[in-house]
């Protein structure tokens, strides 16, 4: 996030960090105990989901707190229109974790907006992430936050030079005057707005022309447009099969027998 500040502890309890091969690559948001919402382009570099990890309850990338939890990824569902009508269109990914998130004061789910949510009228929206904090490539281990005004799509299309660049299922946000915007590494993270004391996620950080040009605002996947698809997939996709704790003693017994057999021959 360019032009942001470090977020206070627990202020954005739905924020997640997606790691690839041990490094932060993208953000995401908690939808429920098993599902995280992120950007499709965060996952198309490799089909091997084993290389991805998800962290929740994190404020500093290098410091695990009391509420920090780590998860392996069970499966990733990319939106069927990803890269179909636009190089980065349909940039939505649903990430199913192998085990359930334990919610706490610092780890909580975000709401999806209803498809007809009214985004006019000066709603206050915020973006968060561990992405670049300067145009020179400086990073921050501390989660950054920035309040960003929404920019009407027709204006955003003019700024980007052609209507086809910014589709209706995208939205734009950025503080042109104060040079606040999202940047590389914030992808997949949430753009959230407060409605009647509830926070709804209306955008997923997706793309932009660099981060340093204020007249090219950040472009987000428009979550209300994808809400039905998200809801349907979460409700119809089976949960992962988790190992049952009752199997542990049996495993222990097997190991004991095996060790005994291996230890046996030299005695004979």
């Amino acid at each position: 996030v360019l032009g942001g500040v470090s977020a206070p502890e627990g202020k954005w309890p739905w924020q997640v960090s997606v790691h690839y091969a041990g490094f932060h690559v993208c953000g995401g948001s908690i939808l429920n105990e098993y599902w995280v919402l992120s950007a499709a382009h965060c996952f198309d570099r490799d089909k091997n989901v084993k290389a991805y990890d998800v962290y929740v309850g994190l404020k500093n990338l290098k410091v695990a707190g009391n509420d920090t939890q780590w998860f392996e990824v069970n499966q990733v569902i990319l939106h069927p229109t990803y890269q179909v009508n636009h190089p980065i269109g349909g940039d939505v990914a649903l990430v199913q974790l192998k085990s359930r998130i334990v919610f706490s004061e610092s780890v909580l789910p975000i709401c999806l907006p209803p498809p007809e949510v009214n985004l006019t009228g000066g709603v206050k929206c915020w973006a968060t992430g561990w992405g670049l904090v300067s145009q020179r490539g400086a990073t921050s281990d501390e989660l950054q936050e920035a309040q960003l005004p929404l920019i009407p799509v027709p204006l955003c299309q003019i700024l980007y030079g052609h209507r086809s660049y910014v589709l209706p299922n995208m939205l734009c946000a950025g503080d042109i005057w104060n040079r606040k915007t999202v940047c590389e590494g914030d992808s997949g993270g949430p753009l959230v707005c407060e409605f009647n004391r509830s926070w709804l996620q209306i955008g997923i950080v997706s793309w932009g022309r660099g981060c340093a040009y204020p007249l090219f605002p950040g472009v987000y996947a428009r979550v209300p447009y994808f809400a039905s698809w998200i809801y349907h997939n979460i409700k119809t996709t089976p949960l992962p099969v988790e190992p049952m704790p009752s199997l542990c003693p049996a495993l222990g017994a097997t190991l004991t027998v095996l060790v005994a057999m291996l230890a046996g021959p030299p005695v004979l």
Binding site: C111, V117, R197
Partner: peptide, 27 residues
């Protein structure tokens, strides 16, 4: 939601916890 807070305004995908709330508000 507890502690007198109204139900969340958005679509919740979590059955036991209110979505879009911070800290104790989410319980």
């Amino acid at each position: 939601a507890v502690r007198g807070h109204p139900k969340s305004q958005g679509i919740s995908l979590s059955s036991n916890w209110a979505c879009g709330r911070r800290g104790a508000e989410g319980r």
